[in-house]
Amino acid sequence: MNRSSARRFYLVGFAVLMAFDTLAQLSFKMAGTQALPLSLSLQWLQRVFSQPWIYGALVGYAGAFFTWMHLLRRAPIGPAFAASHLEIVSVMLVSHWLFGEAIGLAQVAGAGLIVAGIVCLALSEPEAPTEAQPA
């Protein structure tokens, strides 16, 4: 895989991973909010599983798992692990938009540090050696 196609693979792959992770987190929040009040009973479980959001969460986690496994086949582990945490930033931004949650200076600084850390790890990663052809 040449450098241009590798970069495209990583950008698309991590965007898909972030979308699945964001879907899972937001769906759990919606399902949990609609399943209140909490009680350890059969009725509560029925209420949880009657919410379409719980299935969005399951789809999000399954999609994130398979996307992550596919990315790990090619991506360097350091930047890949760091980039997998971009959903923290996306969930914060989408939660602000959907739920009106406040974003303070601490959250902005934290998001900036997450992105800066990913950029630093990506820039420090040496060029991947070309794969050896099987004999």
Rank of each mutant, 00 (worst) to 15 (best):
L38F: 15
W97Q: 11
R47E: 04
G78M: 01
F65T: 15
S27R: 03
H96Y: 02
D21V: 00
S27F: 04
S27G: 10
V48S: 02
F9I: 07
G112D: 05
Q34A: 15
C120A: 14
R8C: 03
R3G: 14
L98I: 15
I54M: 15
L23C: 11
Y55L: 05
P52C: 11
A135L: 14
F9K: 04
I88G: 00
A64S: 14
H85I: 00
P126H: 11
G63Q: 10
L17Y: 07
A111D: 01
V108Y: 10
L123E: 12
Q46T: 01
G100N: 09
V16K: 13
G78S: 12
G110Q: 06
A75M: 08
A109F: 15
V89W: 12
M1E: 07
L40M: 14
L113H: 04
L98R: 14
M30S: 08
A106S: 13
T130N: 06
L98Y: 04
P37W: 03
H70Y: 12
V108G: 10
K29V: 00
A75T: 03
S5C: 02
A80P: 00
W97E: 09
F20V: 13
H70N: 07
S50M: 10
L105V: 13
V119T: 07
F66M: 10
L42D: 05
L98C: 09
W68D: 11
F99K: 09
G78L: 12
Y55W: 13
H85F: 14
E127S: 14
A128C: 03
L26N: 08
S90R: 01
W97V: 14
A15L: 14
A75Y: 07
M18W: 04
S90A: 15
S84P: 04
E127V: 13
A135N: 11
L93D: 01
V119P: 02
S124V: 00
E131W: 10
Q25C: 14
Q34R: 14
R7Q: 14
F81Q: 11
G78R: 06
L93R: 05
G60V: 00
A31E: 10
I114L: 14
H85Y: 13
G117C: 01
A35N: 02
L45D: 04
W97L: 13
P37Q: 11
G104Y: 10
A128G: 02
R7S: 08
A35R: 09
F99W: 15
E127Y: 02
L86A: 08
F20G: 05
Q43M: 03
W97Y: 12
A62Y: 01
T130L: 08
F65L: 15
F9G: 04
S39P: 01
V91Q: 10
A82D: 03
E131S: 13
R3C: 08
V16D: 12
A109H: 08
A24R: 07
S4G: 06
F14H: 07
G110S: 07
W68G: 03
